[in-house]
Design a protein around this nucleic acid. Structure first.
Lengths: 151, 151
DNA sequence: GCGATAATCTCGCTCAGCGAGATATTAACC
DNA sequence: GGTTAATATCTCGCTGAGCGAGATTATCGC
């Protein structure tokens, strides 16, 4: 657990990657007049859409750890920017359904596209077995962080 | 580059890990009455200390992409919380040197300790060669993100 | 010395997010 | 079926992080 443990290098590396992704997100946000929270919100909304889940303000607020007031103003912002839209759920009329607009997906690709391209290029230097090892490791780490969070 | 590419899973995995780390940091911040920016600042200050660099407000502001006004209030906050302290540089008296207090290192360990423990445990299931593969991959990805940022 | 440059800080402002509570809709229970 | 509780969202007023502009203090080149 001290700094000379061979695993510590990996931990620092993971953290460095995280920080770089954050900075990338923040710069993207600034360049498009968005706030970091807006970017995080779009990521969650796009994820939900891909998974076929129906997103609501309450659900989004939980994901981002915002209270209801903050969530309302976030959704107001996204709507004003034309990135998402509200519509009443006809089944339960207390609920509001959130839909991401095409424009948001375009911004998402503009954001992730170049990074994905670079990572794909990097992956070409690795064999299928090696990539599988990386995948196993990252999956395990993902579980680790989740476990550390809940304890 | 589409969703069925075998590398896309890795990209999503990396993003998921990043998001988890962020949420962990945000929860830690909230639990200790800190702001996410304060946590990021402490990470940079601890890194600088480990690397033997002398941190100043200007340097810290660059790292965090804050302007001078925001940096001043950040340092004020850290000082008020007893996590860092200012001292004039005797060589160049325009400069202010930032020092992290012991308390900050303790909080840092309280933050990263459990996660590190979990990751170390995860790493035990992997051979030395496999860990080296993961290290190579993450190092390459770190370069990728940096390249995507600057383009 | 004197102007130019650099590092930090002060002031006033905007706006994200919070707490408290209002409003509207649905579910539960006798 | 009507009253009460629970749920989802929104409104209002406020705090405080971070910004732009500019003041302040220290150093450097001439």
């Amino acid at each position: 657990m001290d700094d000379r443990s061979p695993v510590m290098g990996l931990v620092h590396l993971l953290r460095a990657v995280t920080v770089e992704f954050d900075v990338l997100g923040a710069e993207f946000a600034a360049r498009h007049g968005l706030h970091p929270t807006d970017v995080r919100a779009l990521i969650h909304l796009l994820d939900a859409e891909r998974a076929g889940l129906r997103a609501t303000p309450g659900w989004l607020g939980e994901q981002l750890r915002l209270n209801s007031a903050g969530t309302t103003s976030l959704v107001d912002r996204l709507e004003r920017l034309g990135l998402a839209s509200r519509s009443r759920d006809t089944a339960d009329r207390r609920r509001v359904l959130l839909k991401v607009e095409e424009k948001a997906a375009e911004l998402g690709w503009a954001f992730f596209g170049p990074v994905i391209g670079e990572v794909v290029a990097v992956a070409e230097d690795f064999g299928a077995g090696e990539l599988e090892t990386v995948r196993r490791f990252l999956t395990a780490v993902l579980g680790s962080v989740g476990r550390a969070r809940s304890s």
